[in-house]
Design a protein around this nucleic acid. Structure first.
Length: 565
DNA sequence: CGGAGACGCGCG
DNA sequence: AAAGCGCGCGTCTCCG
């Protein structure tokens, strides 16, 4: 059963029950308390809520302790459809499919004097129209079942993201502060201004200036200044990147590398980060579902997906609780094996360590095999990896052909799609102009055009793998959410006994591309770990069908995130 | 003064 | 050890 939902003023709102094709059974019902009505419908049975934006609507429901099982988010679905249907080559014989009027975002014209209820009714009509149109466009896909799964999983991801933001990642500010103090020195007084360097950084900066024999203090935070000072000491580097500095033999280098590492910690995850992002023992980032073109999530504020490994020491479960940390081992090469249906590669992928198996197959050491494999997926060239790449091509012809074909499509300006049908963006007008000139024999050697074509080839080559891995991880997350909710109800008696509504409930608290963290009472850890395993199996089945490739999860039950690995 | 872009580096 | 792909974000620097 689908129910369309439009919020009103205050707690009220409109609900409209929909048929399977998205048409309403009748005029919408006005309900005085939306959260209550949603909770009642969830209790009564299987509902898929149809609404414009989980990100806007769901946090208020969560605040009222109302969770929903499923939804169709028309913004997320619309964005998937818009990319799929974007015209690729207007000059081609194929007519570009343009999104129909009904699928445009709902922006209602301002009408002076219109009352709130009339606005809501218009909004409901637009929502119902958009949704029905999206259902039609999904069913018109070349693979409606898979694309429909993607839309459902994306919507489920929206729910999971809101729930994770609400729950928050357990974060011990005291541990974080102690780490900072150990590494940087005491926190500089706020009154002195935020420009003041912590003691350890100030020492290092002074040591650096001295080691460079500089007359005036060198600011290591300024690449231009540092580059000049290095040149004055006879150190010739093109940039001040750590990687490049490491090649240089000079006493200043180790000081600079230490400075950079600590300065980065201070700037990105120092005391001001702690003040801004951690409250009540929780780090609550905002996830942006589908924020990356490949379908990976992005985050807004707090750099949630770039937390340095060092700070995992501050992520500690509540007393009596544990963190179940799970990550998909070597996900992307396994995804490639499944995508390409490469039986030799699938055999390698069934080993515990895929890279060792690949190394054995091509007669190289593990490190070389890993580099060659990453190069094949990322489009790396040059260096001494040509030989290993050639061996890969011979041993795993189907997997090689798969990524090569994706790269060719990209270079030719075509669009590629993930296993569930997420489309990559079409080339920009500027790219088409540039590369079509290159097709002209006169201009064929235009290096900029050739570089642009190769660059897009690398992008699409990687897209098919990264986006399909994101599909798999998203489906896993969607399945895990549902399974965790079942554990919740089973444990509800115990939770009620403790007198807390959510007291004993396992909570998804982190998701980072191929890794999830569940925070749960220690007694439920085994059940949660089993749920993760089943979600992974289910995701493999739904996304890849009957594949020979296995997708093992590494699962650790720990009280501190730093102990998982 | 704020915006834009380069740089650099954290994560997968 | 780094590179080939994808991001967010802080600092510096230039520009209007």
């Amino acid at each position: 059963m689908r129910i369309a939902l439009v919020p009103g003023r205050g707690p009220a709102g409109l609900l409209a029950r929909l048929r399977d094709d998205g048409t309403p059974y009748g005029p919408p019902d006005q309900v005085p308390d939306l959260a209550e009505a949603v909770a009642a419908a969830e209790r009564a049975g299987d509902v898929r809520w149809v609404w414009q934006s989980t990100q806007l609507l769901y946090p208020a429901l969560l605040k009222a302790a109302v969770r929903v099982a499923r939804c169709h988010d028309t913004e997320l679905a619309g964005s998937l459809l818009a990319t799929r249907d974007s015209p690729v080559r207007p000059q081609s014989a194929f007519a570009a499919v343009s999104p129909s009027a009904a699928s445009r975002p709902m922006e209602l014209p301002f009408e002076p004097g219109s009352d709130a209820l009339a606005d809501q009714r218009r909004e409901m009509a637009a929502l119902i129209g958009t949704h029905a149109d999206q259902l039609r466009r999904i069913s018109a896909d070349t693979d409606p079942a898979r694309f429909g799964l993607l839309v459902a999983a994306e919507s489920a991801g929206g729910l999971a993201a809101a729930e994770m933001s609400a729950a928050g990642l357990p974060w011990r500010a005291d541990i974080h502060d102690r780490l900072l103090t150990e590494l940087l020195g005491p926190r500089p007084p706020a009154a002195a201004g935020s420009q003041l360097r912590p003691a350890r950084l100030a020492e290092l900066a002074a040591d650096i200036s001295r080691a460079l024999g500089a007359v005036r203090p060198v600011n290591p935070d300024s690449p231009a200044q540092l580059l000049r000072a290095l040149a004055a000491s006879g150190i010739r580097v093109r940039s001040t990147r750590s990687a490049e500095l490491r090649q240089v033999d000079h006493p200043v280098i180790s000081l600079l590398l230490q400075y950079k590492e600590l300065a980065r910690l201070h700037a990105a995850n120092g005391w001001s980060w702690l003040d801004s992002w951690v409250a009540d023992g929780r780090f609550r980032p905002e996830y942006v579902v589908g924020g990356v073109v490949s379908g990976r999530w992005a985050s807004r504020g707090g750099g949630a997906l770039q937390i340095p490994k060092l700070l995992r020491k501050a992520v500690v479960a509540d007393p009596g609780w544990v963190l179940v940390v799970a990550d998909a081992a070597q996900l992307e090469p396994r995804v490639l094996a499944a995508l390409a249906g490469d039986s030799a590669f699938a055999r390698a992928a069934n080993a515990d360590d895929l890279y060792s198996a690949v190394a054995a197959a091509i007669g190289a050491d593990r490190a070389k095999a890993k580099v060659a494999l990453l190069s094949a997926m990322y489009g790396g060239t040059g260096g001494d990896r040509g030989q290993s790449l050639a061996l890969l091509r011979r041993r795993f012809p189907d997997a090689s052909a798969f990524v090569e074909s994706a790269a060719r499509a990209g270079q030719e300006g075509r669009v590629v799609r993930s296993v569930l049908g997420r489309a990559c963006p079409p080339p920009s007008a500027a790219w088409r102009t540039l590369t079509s000139e290159a097709a002209d024999p006169e201009q064929q050697r235009d290096p900029a055009a050739a570089a642009a074509a190769r660059s897009r080839g690398r992008f699409t080559r990687n897209f098919v793998v990264q986006a399909s891995a994101a599909d798999w991880a998203l489906v896993l997350l969607a399945l895990l959410r549902i399974r965790l909710a079942a554990i919740t109800s089973a444990a509800a008696g115990g939770a009620a006994a403790l007198g807390g509504g959510a007291a004993g409930r396992p909570q998804l608290v982190f998701f980072q591309h191929d890794e999830v963290i569940v925070h749960c009472p220690a007694s439920l850890a085994a059940e949660v770990a089993a749920a993760i395993g089943m979600a992974a199996t289910g995701a493999t089945q739904l996304v890849f069908g009957a594949t020979a490739v296995s997708f093992p999860m590494t699962i650790a039950v720990v009280s501190c995130y730093a102990d998982a690995k």
